[in-house]
Amino acid sequence: MSLVVSSFAAAVLLLLALASPAAAFNITRILGEFPDFSTFNGLLSQTKLADEINRRQTITVLAVNNGGMGGITSLPSDVQRKVLAVHVVLDYYDTEKLGSMKNRSAVLTTLFQSTGQAANRMGFINYTRRATDGVMMFGSAEPGAPLMSQMVKSVMSRPYNISVLEVSSAIVPPSIGSGDNSKAHAPAPAHAKTPAPAPTPSKSKKPEKEGAPVPAPAPSDDSIADAPADGPDADGPAPADAPADDDDDKSSDDTGDAAGRVVARLGLGIGALLMILLSL
């Protein structure tokens, strides 16, 4: 029984060992069979992007022929790698799968999205199959980017590991070479905040120093307009002293009343004490 189990386990391991190389692919060798993609294939090797593609189990490559590579070869080398990564979709799509989509459109995730460098939806591709003629169009999912690249044909496919589709032109997100988008938009809120605190301290400090509700920018106009109406009451100390005198008078009256009540109570107590003594 143990020999049967061990033989079965060895057979399974052998099948797995044979199956793993069959599932793997080499994008450089695949594109090397088509001279029309020699420039695209060469850039995949130069940017080391071919190694990342070969490590994937499921992939779709949107290849551009030599005549349409001017939009990529004119870019700096670091930007070329990013743009090429946009042409690698992290799923399997062939013409049949794309043509059978119910909504005739989809947002596809690319290899550039997995790098963590994508911003503003640069790591996604918009796909749409036109209702008028059925042409399959591709374009960057970045806001404002047009659908300019159309599918030409299927180059090769190995369901469901790899599919190579030829597109008419390079898919370049508009701001992929402009640096970090988050830093580019950062100064706008910073400048918007700086003028806001400026008027706040000027208004809050002046009323505390002057002690008046009238704003500081126009004291002369307010004093001239209020002077005839207020007359002597305009002086600050006069109304401030008046309530102080009233408080002194009230306090003196209160002390006098308290003293009178004490004397009256003493008189009543003495009278009660005399009546008690007389009764004895």
Rank of each mutant, 00 (worst) to 15 (best):
A238W: 13
S169L: 06
M136D: 02
A240Q: 13
A242V: 12
K205D: 10
K193E: 14
M151T: 05
E166W: 05
L111C: 01
P187V: 00
P228E: 04
T132C: 04
G139P: 03
R129T: 04
P197N: 03
P213Q: 11
P219E: 06
P237H: 13
A141L: 00
G177L: 12
N181T: 03
D222R: 06
S149K: 02
A106V: 05
A192Q: 07
P213F: 03
K102G: 04
A145N: 09
R158W: 07
V167R: 05
S149N: 04
S149I: 04
P215K: 06
A170S: 15
V135G: 00
S202H: 02
P187D: 02
N103P: 03
Y160A: 11
N181S: 08
R121C: 05
S140T: 01
G236H: 15
P189Q: 07
P201D: 11
A188R: 12
R129S: 06
Q150K: 09
D222Y: 08
T194W: 06
A141W: 00
D226E: 10
A240V: 14
I171Q: 02
T128Q: 14
V135T: 07
P239I: 07
S163Q: 10
T110R: 02
K203M: 04
L108I: 05
D180F: 08
S223V: 12
S182F: 03
D233Y: 13
E208L: 13
S105V: 05
G211H: 12
S204Q: 12
D221V: 01
G236R: 15
P228I: 07
A145G: 04
A145P: 03
G139N: 00
A227E: 09
G179T: 13
N103R: 10
N103E: 11
N126P: 08
D241E: 12
S204N: 11
P201N: 11
N120Q: 14
